[in-house]
């Protein structure tokens, strides 16, 4: 479904991604793990063309994304749940959903689907998103990423900055979403990532250094520890 092939991305002069390759198959949840600053977020941004790669290719359902504008990529069915949620704080919950709905789609139906998946949000429908709690904002960010029949969700650090009891609610929500939607998940919280994902890629210094099924990880966790600790 998604093929990232030998992608090189720069910020100014610094070479952030040094040939990242990975793939995500329809229906799976794939985790992208690694320490801070190894290029996980940049990988997502390169897929979305927010940080266009200088070399390499990103194909989605066989179509090349490199060279497209971000909004064109988004309209192909890629949803983004960014770090720190980035909900529009001065827009109401409904407006946050509406803004993500494609012009030709029915806003009412999108709202119904949102409240079906996240019933908690319905109570706050006319409240400004900035007034929601962190957990509620995260739910809204996920809901917003799903609007418009998106079938690949790029999720960045969903547990960051949330209280532990709320993290569990987010994990449950993501597991629910993952049953129907393909996900590429960036997560620092290692147990959570292993819990949610079917497969994983381990990133270090802008390169994939390991990958495999999450089930095999416990046997091989010497490697993981080396890259995740310190």
């Amino acid at each position: 479904m998604l093929e990232v092939d030998d992608v090189h991305t720069y910020y100014g002069e610094s070479h952030v991604l040094q040939g990242v390759s990975l793939s995500v198959e329809e229906g799976e949840t794939v985790a992208l793990i690694g320490r801070n600053g190894v290029g996980k977020t940049t990988t997502l941004r390169s897929i979305l063309q927010l940080a266009p790669p200088r070399e390499g290719s990103v194909r989605y359902r066989g179509e090349e994304l490199v060279g497209l504008e971000t909004h064109e990529v988004a309209r192909k069915g890629l949803g983004w749940v960014p770090e720190e949620r980035r909900v529009f704080s001065h827009l109401t919950v409904e407006e946050n959903v509406e803004v993500a709905t494609p012009a030709e789609a029915d806003v009412g139906a999108a709202l119904d689907r949102t409240y079906e998946t996240f019933p908690a949000l319905e109570r706050f429908r006319d409240k400004e998103a900035g007034d929601l709690s962190g957990g509620q904002q995260q739910m809204l960010a996920i809901a917003r990423g799903l609007v418009g029949e998106n079938d690949l969700l790029l999720v960045d650090e969903p547990s960051e900055g949330l209280a532990p009891q709320i993290v569990q609610a987010v994990v449950d929500a993501l597991r629910e979403v993952g049953r129907e939607t393909t996900m590429l998940l960036v997560e620092q919280n290692f147990p959570m990532a292993m819990d949610l994902a079917d497969r994983f890629y381990l990133l270090d210094h802008g390169e994939v250094v390991a990958s495999g099924d999450t089930e095999d990880v416990s046997r091989d966790d010497e490697l993981i520890r080396r890259y995740l600790s310190a």
Binding site: L50, E69, T70, H71, P82, F88, S89, V99, A100, G148
Partner: peptide
């Protein structure tokens, strides 16, 4: 509020 986020939601900014 956030022009990058708007782009990523499919808006031609």
């Amino acid at each position: 509020e956030d022009s990058e986020m708007a782009q990523a939601l499919g808006i031609d900014i």
